[in-house]
Amino acid sequence: MIIYGTAILAACYVIGIFLGDLLGVAIGAKANVGGVGIAMILLIVAKIYLEKYKMMPKATEGGINFWGAMYIPVVVAMAAQQNVVVALRGGWVAVISAAVAFALCACCIAVLSRTGNRGTPLPPIDTEIAIAIAR
């Protein structure tokens, strides 16, 4: 049943956000600390466990994969409600701080991703259809 998958996902989400809030209070951060990350780890663990005991039929997976695929549309909706006007009105302090901060971070990313044991590149893809088939 599709709803089982969505329910597992929802349970991981709620528990993760709750633990993130608790962690935030515990260390006095006044914000949710890693709630989404904790929820993601819970889902990964749940997946490994359920697959091991053959309790993850295709339909259940579908209840999770649907929401994963809705991610990009949600990001488009998120972009459509950013406060772009204020961002542009912030003036040069905001623009320069943001640009220099991102430029420096980009250099750090370039350096870090080329040091140590480099990750193996994912196989190339052309279209979303290729991903769908790969699934």
């Binding site: 996902l9 929802a10 991981c12 989400y13 993760g16 956000i17 709630g35 989404v36 929820a39 993601m40 780890i41 889902l43 990964i44 997946k47 997976e61 999770i64 994969n65 649907f66 929401w67 994963g68 809705m70 991610y71 549309p73 949600v74 990001v75 488009v76 909706a77 998120m78 972009a79 459509a80 409600q81 950013q82 406060n83 772009v84």
Partner: peptide, 30 residues
Amino acid sequence: KGLADLSLFSGIGLMGGAMFRDFTIVATAF
């Protein structure tokens, strides 16, 4: 809130809000 402040597109606010954003991100962890 950008487009979401037009009443015709108020749903954009819900769809692109923190709840759906985080829920779908968690789903990608699958």
